[in-house]
């Protein structure tokens, strides 16, 4: 509906109707409010795990065997113990991080042990995934307390074949 105002000099002025615009604007506002979701930031751990073909045969001699981290769970899926190789670490992820750091050392250059080392996670079937993620976090690096930067320790992480249920 247009409202026409006839001005003194005979000119006709068309006043802009705000109603349709406000209608649309409110509809948009309602749409955005309804679809709004507070999302917490997410991040990824990137792992590359190709399937080994049976024809690959024995691994190359120059390739070091992976460091095995065994995680045992109780019947409820809670973490019972962590083993790195034959060494028991209780159920402390800080101990796991310290052990991995001690093993890898501070050399981070290309071709260093840190660059080539690989960790294989061997978990009980019923272990909660939360503990797996905490283990991956402990193995893959730490935050430098001085600089606040992430220091990567081991990038190559893989899973052992799943254990029976």
């Amino acid at each position: 509906m247009k409202v026409r105002h006839v001005q003194r000099h005979g000119e006709e002025k068309i006043e802009l109707q705000m109603t349709p615009m406000i209608d649309i604007v409110f509809l948009m506002l309602i749409f955005f409010i309804m679809t709004f979701k507070i999302a917490s930031p997410e991040g990824d751990f990137s792992i590359k795990m190709p399937r080994h073909a049976p024809s690959e045969g024995l691994p190359d001699d120059s390739q070091l065997p992976p460091i095995t981290v065994r995680m045992r769970a109780d019947s409820e899926g809670r973490l019972k113990s962590i083993w790195m190789g034959q060494r028991g670490l209780g159920n402390s992820f800080d101990a796991l991080r310290s052990e991995v750091r001690a093993l890898i050392g501070d050399d981070r250059g290309p071709g260093s042990f840190a660059d080539t080392a690989e960790v294989e996670l061997d978990c009980d079937y019923q272990l909660k995934y939360e503990y797996v993620m905490r283990a991956i976090t402990a193995i893959s690096g730490y935050i430098d307390p001085d600089t606040g930067r992430v220091i990567t320790v081991i990038e190559k992480i893989k899973f052992a074949p799943p254990r029976g249920e």
């Binding site: 795990m49 009980d124 254990r163």
Partner: peptide
């Protein structure tokens, strides 16, 4: 269960996929 996650990864590997991103909340 960690075993179920591994099963999913194994199915993906058997299909030919190699790259995985395990997602976590920051």
């Amino acid at each position: 269960q960690a075993g179920k996650v591994q099963e999913v990864i194994k199915i993906c590997q058997d299909t030919g996929f190699e790259k995985f991103h395990l997602r976590a909340k920051q």
